[in-house]
């Protein structure tokens, strides 16, 4: 039932992918198993080290959605600024965009064809 899907250049078969993933997983597990068993749960080892300061509560330091890609947004602020301005939320602008696209498409189709 799990056949091969032709995708233009190559092919895609989920069953081969799953078998590969399982094989890779087993190999990784073996490598992990050979490692040093020094990790001990519930000791000082598992706590974050913040320059000797007491650890603040998890609720206080959680990063909220708005700040998740802060650096990315900051780097691309020259792109995002005009884009946010373009999405003005005014219905007239939405219709103007439609008229602009209609005009361009008409010039291309009416002029070239």
């Amino acid at each position: 039932m799990f056949g091969i899907l032709e995708t233009g250049y190559g092919f895609w078969s989920p069953i081969i992918w799953i078998i590969t993933i399982i094989v890779i997983g087993i190999i990784l597990y073996i490598i992990w198993h050979l490692g040093e068993p020094a990790y001990k749960k519930g000791t000082e080892q598992t706590k974050p080290f913040l320059a000797g300061m007491p650890e603040p509560s998890k609720e206080a330091v959680t990063v909220r959605a708005d700040n998740v890609y802060w650096g990315f947004k900051e780097a691309l602020k020259h792109y995002y600024g005009p884009m946010i301005k373009t999405h003005s939320g005014i219905i007239n602008d939405y219709i103007s965009w439609f008229v602009v696209v209609l005009a361009i498409v008409f010039v291309i189709i009416g002029g070239l064809l």
């Binding site: 899907l5 995708t7 233009g8 250049y9 190559g10 895609w12 989920p14 992918w17 799953i18």
Partner: peptide, 16 residues
């Protein structure tokens, strides 16, 4: 992401 359906159709889109 494989092996979900979106991967199969997107792979076809990319390659064609």
């Amino acid at each position: 992401l494989p092996p979900m359906n979106g991967f199969a159709s997107k792979l076809m889109i990319y390659e064609s």
